[in-house]
Design a protein around this nucleic acid. Structure first.
Lengths: 329, 329
DNA sequence: CTGAAAGCGCTTACAG
DNA sequence: CTGAAAGCGCTTACAG
């Protein structure tokens, strides 16, 4: 490990001067600046946290998401990373894998790096043990704000669930099944389901019991035979697009065609839904701009002591070919 | 910021004792351990790098990938993160966005955190300015090893390109167009293209000039009208699956059906290719196991001073419905 | 098991 | 503009 001491020696100056040059604090002659910079480059010098205040290092923020491989989250993450890069902050990531237990460990790991701030997408913000911990400035992303953590960037998931369900009702569907990841693993899914219930009740219909499916690395091998044997839905709402794809694949394996036999809709608006044929009907979340917004809010709070705010970003219902009008049938 | 001093005071012991308890070095009475831990928890204490050796903090590794939103990379990243979590290391990420210039900045940002090691997927390992820098133990992922950086985890991209092209040739295709991201942005794409050329030449055919398309956040709005006007390929090989999806969408917009009018194949084997209908023909990269392998290799090098190695992981040609046999036509 | 003290790499007034 | 020195938060022999 190269120390500042070594750099100073090579540059032929004192520790203090070398420090001033590299930290850009205080002034130094052009010649000295050159010598020190050169010595530092040659030795591959990297500062180590230090001194009173410990302001030496590049600040970093920690980001927790359920799963990097879900495009909704990787897209948010990407825009967070971009925004933070501009601000000269590093980004440290952690995944909860939709498991409240691992979530705690993951945040612990982030905290060990003493981040300037945190952006968290929790399994369930209301019950998470994390929010009892001593946290640096924190913004919730996709979780509604809590009393302790009032900074949040969200989408109106309940409204979205209601609007999507209304669309299906308007198309003549009555037997609408809500298929979801575990509610305990995603309070977003729970909110979306509430919206579904509201829409059903509005029309005097009994909501079907929701079906919760654990996320195990993917939904490739989803088996719907039992479900379809019991209920016979004309439409299925999946609590997220990845699950919707899994549902469509599973239906195909069972010999059903979408949307001819069953309509399918999802939530998230991941890019791949627009590339498939027919295009997926979904609630489009502005994931990239949500990420950027969360990052900006966090920076504002951490650097300018701005007050915590709750920002609700509008979503968009995108109707694709996976839902069919059955009112004329 | 809470200091160890404050924790010690609250626990009623000396700085030294508090340090020993929290760093698990040296011994302390059970009672003392409890008191110190409790005080640390109450104050939300987090260690800051320190002391001789600076071994205090959790070690971290830096990972550079072209783009988090490409499932191949997010999948590798996810398995790297999992492997590192088990080893008690944090993971810091950076994106190059397929831009060699941003790549340098991104690695600089990673280095500022003094990572124990680095896992890099470079635009072009042979020409990258990064490999001239003073780096900690480094593993290349998806780039072939260089003289300075002999540790690498790769797939035989040239062979894969050849094998995929042979498949199309065997199906009767002669006019096979290779469509690619910018070669300067991806030496993988260049290798795959070489394989394409080899296969064509093997059969005494002239390879068509490759078409390079810049990646600009996605391939949603790809316009192939000009291309299809000039050449009239019966098959298109895209240098990666994301591009292949873009191609299929663009073809559809131009009124072509896949595979009836044109066959399409890609590289990567991202999950979504198996969910679409027809399934994408592609070269399946074991992205998750490549990530885990790179992580394990890096840990072995950083912790056990293991020698750098080059590991080549087998790929798999997966034939889906997007290619058609035209030999009988 | 515990504490006083030396020491790490660094920064920042304080002199000159 | 530059350096000697004090000080930061921490760890680790060294005593007891």
């Amino acid at each position: 490990m190269t120390t500042l001491q070594q750099v100073a020696k090579r540059a032929g100056c004192s520790l203090a001067t070398a420090s001033r040059v590299l930290a850009r604090s205080g002034s130094a002659s052009d010649q000295m600046v050159r010598k020190v910079r050169r010595a530092a480059a040659e030795l591959g010098y990297r500062p180590v946290s230090a001194g009173p205040g410990r302001a030496g290092r590049q600040p970093i923020v920690g980001v927790l998401i359920p799963s990097i491989t879900n495009p909704v989250f990787s897209s948010s993450l990407s825009s967070i990373e971009n925004r933070m890069l501009m601000a000269g902050h590093g980004v440290l990531i952690a995944q909860s894998h939709y498991d409240p237990g691992r979530e705690v460990d993951a945040v612990e790991a982030l905290l060990n790096e003493r981040p300037t701030g945190l952006i968290l997408t929790l399994c369930n913000a209301a019950t998470s043990r994390i929010l009892g911990m001593a946290l640096p400035p924190t913004v919730l992303l996709n979780n509604r704000p809590t009393a302790d953590y009032p900074a949040a960037v969200t989408v109106a998931n309940r409204d979205a669930g209601r609007e999507l369900t209304r669309l299906l009702l308007d198309l003549g569907h009555r037997q609408i099944l809500f298929l979801s990841g575990n509610f305990a693993a995603s309070d977003r899914a729970a909110m979306r389901h509430e919206g579904y219930c509201l829409a059903m009740e509005e029309r005097g219909l009994e909501p079907l019991a929701p079906l919760q499916i654990a996320f195990v690395g993917g939904y490739d091998q989803l088996d719907l035979s039992v479900v379809l044997g019991r209920a016979s839905p004309t439409a299925i709402i999946a609590s997220n697009d990845l699950l919707a794809f899994g549902v469509i694949g599973a239906l195909r394996r069972e010999g059903f065609q979408v949307p001819r036999d069953i309509s399918v809709a999802g939530f998230d608006g991941i890019a791949i839904g627009r590339l498939m044929e027919p295009q997926l009907t979904t609630i489009e979340m502005p994931d990239a701009s949500m990420g950027a917004t969360a990052a900006s809010l966090l920076l504002d709070m951490a650097e300018n002591a701005a007050p915590a705010r709750h920002l609700e970003i509008p979503y968009l219902l995108r109707r694709g070919g996976t839902v069919r009008d059955i009112s004329a049938d």
